[in-house]
Computed example of a mutant assay.
Amino acid sequence: MPSTRLLLVRHGETDWAKGRRHTGRTDIGLNATGEAQARDLPGRLPLDGVVAIWCSPLARSRDTAARAGLAVDVIDPDLIEWDYGFAEGRTTAQIRDERPGWTVWDDEITGGESLEQVGARADSVIVRARSVEGTVALVGHAHHLRVLAARWLGLAPGGGRHLTLDPAGWGALGWERETPVIERWNPPGPPI
Rank of each mutant, 00 (worst) to 15 (best):
R99M: 12
L148Y: 08
E88Q: 15
I80F: 07
L145G: 11
Y84D: 11
A71S: 14
G134D: 00
A149R: 04
L79A: 03
A129Y: 04
L79I: 00
T91I: 11
I126Y: 06
D83V: 05
H141N: 03
E98R: 14
A150Y: 06
G111F: 10
V132I: 15
L145W: 07
A129T: 03
G101W: 05
Y84H: 15
H141R: 03
L115R: 10
V127M: 03
S61R: 00
P157T: 04
I126T: 07
L58H: 03
I80P: 00
V74I: 15
I126A: 05
G154M: 08
E108G: 10
G89D: 12
A142T: 09
V74W: 12
R128F: 00
W82F: 15
D83I: 04
E88Y: 13
R67I: 03
A68N: 03
A68K: 07
L148E: 03
L145H: 07
F86S: 12
L70A: 00
H141T: 00
L115D: 00
A150Q: 04
V74N: 09
V118P: 02
A87F: 12
A129I: 04
I95H: 09
R67P: 02
A137D: 00
V72F: 12
G89V: 13
H143Y: 07
I109A: 06
R146M: 10
A71W: 01
D76C: 09
